[in-house]
Design a binder for these strands. Structure first.
Length: 576
RNA sequence: GCCACCUUAGCUCAGCGGCAGAGCAUUGGUAUCGUAAACCAAGGGUCCCGGGUUCAAAUCCCGGAGGUGGCUCCA
């Protein structure tokens, strides 16, 4: 075990020590080390406040300075049950342990049930390199059927400097928060009348969505994907057949017809609809692969507490596609998709790695026979190796109908986000009775591949806003050029002439002709992260030029309008 | 959905039992300005909603909605 992990784990014990001193009736759950720190779950005898938190934190510092030893001791389960007779959660843990003996650790007056992994003495802990950060609720043993305990989180590092770096990083992340930037840059809004988790996109936000979706569609068309269109509601019978009704029935938005019988639902995904286009007529092997794509919105009745900005919404738009093909074609199709993903994320300046999301053989939620699952998972891993993907395997992360290659995007702050996905599905073609006539004249079941390049556009936009901190590349920027006449009176006419040229070349621009100082207009445009500002004054009019200022680079000096147009057109075409 | 906290002008926030406030933004006026905030003035409020306590509630209590951080879930 790494030393920092020992420090974090030891701090969890010290947290419990300090708590037990103040509130001896507290029932302790578990207290492990986690990424960047530690936590302890407990049932406290009183409501805990932020002031209590800082008091406990101060007490922990004192305990550290006492240079307490951590001493481990194995005891029999019977002895342990006596030691922890007032701790019902610990007793439950002891019951679950299969060995005859269990580990205990003592520091100061506090004894905890624990299998070890501590520092030898608290003097190894820097009292200024940790902080209690927040109070949260957490279900006992992670199951929502169990009681909710209070979880106290702390962050901890080996040195004060590392803690300060971490805090700085958090502050940077806060500044980039897409919910904050979404408002500052006027990209999307929410309305209490429309409802939670239902973002409304402003004209500027819609440009971003359209440009991203357009790029994705362009890549797909080049690979032989055909655009289709499906209605956003369906009879629920569709999902009873697909298997989604059983898995996700309680997360469907139900729609009631007042004119006919039968229940309807807003579509929470598109694959079942797409199967019905495939199933509309007899298919031959000669038609395969059939690739249906669509940028379309789905609706999921997510629990309100799970909603968050654009990253978790109730109306989500996917650049979705479903490929119907033979088993032999699977590999080539996956390669095509991966090629699109590489191009897309390459142009967007995002690193990524792959996660093979496989089934958990112990979990009954996965439909279809085990042999097929095994075959599908082996196929995916073979493809991942062949494509030289940097991948990890995640057991229990598969969809209920098949395993996936999930693409984890790494943003500018090093955080990982699941975006693109490609999934192999043997289950739905079977359940919908899909067929094609094979070369030998027999009827065979096609394989289905689900793919999304951006994933959910809303979510991707949230990630991308934070990745770029709102500094979108020129081809995406809602306003690409701001034309700023120094004097509204004297220079507006020429500014309008320049604007007309920009318009003629399909550029998105704004003329800032308000009666304000040049500095103020530059400040406004810079705060909106406009990539290029064209300053227009007497000098420019005389030289038939524009004064170019580039975002983040400052004044580039004057250049003829023609030269500027060529420069930006090149930049846009290259998506650089 | 569960636990904790939060909600005052378009935005960021102060006020915390006794007259509803500031900065920015908006509108009007003056200045016509060379690379990140000119000056003056005015308008703008269901203090999230509903109920209760009180002579008196933005302020205290209860319920609800929305948000934030977690938990659970994520086709």
């Amino acid at each position: 075990m790494e030393n920092i992990e020992k420090i974090r784990h030891s701090l969890a014990h010290l947290l419990a020590s300090a708590i037990m001193e103040s509130y001896p009736k507290t029932k302790l759950g578990i207290g492990p080390a986690v990424e960047n720190g530690f936590y302890y779950d407990m049932e406290l005898p009183k409501d805990f406040t932020a002031e209590d938190l800082s008091r406990i934190e101060a007490r922990m510092r004192e305990l550290i300075k006492e240079n307490q030893d951590f001493t481990g001791k194995k005891v029999t389960k019977i002895a342990a049950k006596k030691l922890f007779k007032d701790q019902p959660y610990k007793l439950e843990l002891i019951k679950d342990i299969e060995d005859k003996e269990v580990g205990t650790y003592q520091n100061g007056a506090f004894l905890d049930l624990c299998k070890g992994g501590h520092v030898d003495n608290t003097k190894e802990i820097d009292p200024n390199a940790f902080k209690l950060t927040k109070l949260a609720g957490a279900y006992w043993k992670g199951s929502e059927k169990n009681k909710m305990l209070t979880r106290i989180y702390g962050v901890a590092f080996a040195t004060k400097q590392e803690l300060e770096n971490y805090v700085k990083m958090q502050e940077e992340a806060e500044k980039r928060d897409h919910r904050v930037l979404g408002q500052k840059l006027d990209l999307f809004v929410f309305s209490d009348l429309v409802g939670p988790g239902l973002p409304l996109y402003t004209p500027k936000g819609t440009i971003l969505r359209d440009e991203l979706a357009g790029f994705s569609e362009q890549l797909q068309k080049e690979k032989g994907f055909q655009k289709v269109w499906i209605p956003h509601i369906t009879k629920i019978d569709l999902y009873k057949t697909s298997g989604h009704w059983d898995k996700f029935g309680d997360e469907l938005f139900l729609v009631k017809s007042q004119e006919s019988s039968g229940e309807f639902a807003l579509k929470p995904m598109n694959c079942p609809h797409h199967t019905q286009i495939y199933a509309s007529k007899p298919r031959s092997y000669r038609e395969l692969p059939l690739r249906y794509m669509e940028t379309t919105t789905c609706y999921r009745d997510e629990k309100t507490g799970e909603l968050s900005g654009l990253t978790r919404v109730r109306s989500l738009t996917q650049d979705d596609a479903h490929i119907f093909c033979t088993m032999e074609q699977v590999e080539q199709e996956f390669e095509n998709i991966m090629e699109m993903i590489k191009t897309l994320y390459g142009k967007l300046g995002l690193e990524f790695k792959a996660r093979l999301s496989f089934s958990d053989p112990e979990d009954p939620k996965y439909l279809g026979d085990k042999a097929n699952w095994k075959k599908a998972e082996e196929t995916l891993e073979r493809i991942a190796k062949k494509l030289g993907l940097n991948y990890t395997i995640a057991t229990g992360e598969a969809a209920f109908y098949g395993p996936k290659i999930d693409i984890m995007v790494i943003d500018a702050l090093g955080r990982e986000w699941q975006c693109a996905t490609e999934q192999l599905d043997f289950v739905q073609p079977m359940r919908f009775g899909l067929e094609y006539a094979a070369e030998d004249g027999t009827k065979k079941t096609p394989v289905m591949i689900h793919k999304a390049l951006l994933g959910t556009i809303d979510r991707f936009l949230g990630v991308y806003i934070e990745h770029t901190a709102g500094n979108f590349p020129l081809w995406l920027a809602p306003v690409q050029v701001a034309v700023i006449p120094i004097s509204a009176e004297k220079h507006s006419e020429y500014a309008d002439k320049v604007a007309k040229e920009l318009q003629g070349h399909g550029l998105r621009f704004e003329v800032m002709a308000e009666n304000e100082s040049l500095s103020k207009k530059i400040r406004q445009a810079e705060m909106q992260h406009v990539p290029y500002l064209l300053i227009i004054g007497d000098k420019e009019i005389q030289a038939n030029a524009v004064g170019v200022r580039e975002r983040g680079k400052g004044d580039l000096g004057a250049m003829p309008v023609e030269e500027f147009l060529n420069k930006v057109k090149k930049e846009i075409n290259n998506k650089s």
